[in-house]
Design a binder for these strands. Structure first.
Lengths: 186, 186
DNA sequence: TCTAAACTGGTACATCCGTCCCACTTTTTG
DNA sequence: CAAAAAGTGGGACGGATGTACCAGTTTAGA
C-alpha cells in the first residue's frame, strides 16, 4: 500500500480527472445552459485547479464537444435500459432542465460541424430505440412516423411545458391504432 | 424643409431606431447565435451609438425577447404568405442559419418563462398553418400528426443536414395516404 | 540511476462584456 | 416663453472569461 487507496496509478488518476471534469461540464451545461460552461466553474465543481481544464482540453469547444458526447452516451444508455414506454414517466419525474440541456446541445450542433456527428448519433440512437420498440427496421415508414412524432412531442413538452397525454397514448399498445387516424370521428 | 426628408417627426425617428436595432439584433442572432448578440454589435450594425441599445431596451434579456418576438412575427408572416407546400423549397433555398436561429431561440425559451409565451405563439402559428393546409381544426388528430412530423423533419433537416425527401412527399397531395401507413408492406 | 516526459497548480494578462454616468441638444408641455 | 421631459452620444468602470505562462513535482523509459 504505497498509494492512497482511492487512486491506483497516475495515469488512472489522470483519466479519472478527465471524466470528473467531463461530468462537471455536463452538469453545469444542463443546469445553466451554455453560459454556465466556463473553465472556472467546471474546475470548481470538479474540485480541481483551473489549469486542469486547459490541460486536459485544448479548447472550450473541445470541452463542449466531449461533454456533449458524454451526455449522449449517458442518456442513450438510460433510455435503452428503461425502455421506450417508460419515457413519459421519466420525462415527468426527472429534471426537466437535464433533458433540455441535451436538446439545446443538439440544436447547437446545427452551427458546428464538429458537433453534428454527435447529434446524428443521438438521433440515430433514438430511432433505433423506436425500431426496437416496434420490432421493425429503422427505415420502415411506421418507425419513422413514431420517431418523428416522439421527437416533436418530447421537445414541445420540454420547451413549452405542455401536458404529455398525447405522448403517453402514443406509446401504449393501443398506439398501433392511434397512429393510424383512419377513423374520421368528429 | 425644416427637417431632413428621410425622417418625419422625432418620435417616429425614435420608433424607427427601435425597429432598426431590433432588426440588427435578429440578423446577428441568426447569423452567429446567442454569443453574437452583444450591445456593441447591435449598435454597430444599426449604425447607432452604443448607448442607444441601453436606452431603448433596459436589458440584454429584453432585447433578446423582443428580437425573438420580431423574428417569430416575420417568419410566420412569410410562411402564411407562401403557404405550407412551399416550405421544402424555402428550406432548401433560404439561409439555413436563419431558420436555425429561430429554433435555437425556441429551445432557449425552455429556460426562460418570459420567452415561453413567444415560443407558444410560434408553435401555435405553425399548427394553425397545418390546420389551414388540411382544412381541419387544429385539434384534429390528423392535423396534430402532420404538425409533429413536420416539426421533427424540419428541425432534423436544419441540425443534421439530412435530405428533405421525406418532408416533400408529406406535403404533396398524396400525403393523405402517406400519413396512413395502413399498408403493412414488407 | 538519470533524464525526458507528463502532470500539477498558482498566477497573470489581454480582451470583451453589460451597464452606468454625464454633458449636450431637441422636443413637448404648462 | 420658460421649464420639464425625452432623446443622443461619448466615454468609463467593474467584473468575468479564455488562455498562456512557469516553477515545481512525479512518473516512465534508457
Amino acid at each position: 500500500m504505497t498509494r492512497p487507496p482511492h487512486q491506483r496509478s497516475p495515469q488512472q488518476r489522470a483519466t479519472q480527472r478527465r471524466t470528473t471534469l467531463l461530468q462537471a461540464a455536463v452538469e453545469l451545461l444542463t443546469e445553466g445552459g451554455f453560459p454556465a460552461l466556463t473553465h472556472r466553474a467546471v474546475a470548481q465543481r470538479a474540485g480541481l485547479p483551473l489549469a486542469a481544464t486547459t490541460y486536459y482540453f485544448t479548447n472550450r469547444d473541445e470541452l463542449l464537444a466531449q461533454a456533449f458526447s458524454h451526455l449522449v452516451d449517458q442518456e442513450l444508455a438510460t433510455l435503452t435500459h428503461h425502455g421506450l414506454p417508460a419515457l413519459p414517466d421519466q420525462l415527468a419525474h426527472t429534471d426537466r432542465l437535464h433533458q433540455l440541456g441535451l436538446w439545446e446541445l443538439y440544436v447547437h450542433a446545427g452551427r458546428h460541424p464538429r458537433l453534428q456527428e454527435i447529434a446524428r448519433r443521438w438521433s440515430d440512437g433514438c430511432l433505433a430505440l423506436v425500431a426496437d420498440h416496434l420490432a421493425l427496421p429503422p427505415h420502415h415508414p411506421r418507425t419513422r412516423l413514431l420517431y418523428t412524432t416522439l421527437y416533436a412531442l418530447w421537445l414541445e413538452h420540454l420547451v413549452e411545458q405542455r401536458p404529455l397525454d398525447e405522448l403517453r397514448t402514443l406509446l401504449t399498445p393501443a398506439a398501433e391504432n392511434a397512429s393510424h387516424p383512419a377513423d374520421p370521428a368528429t
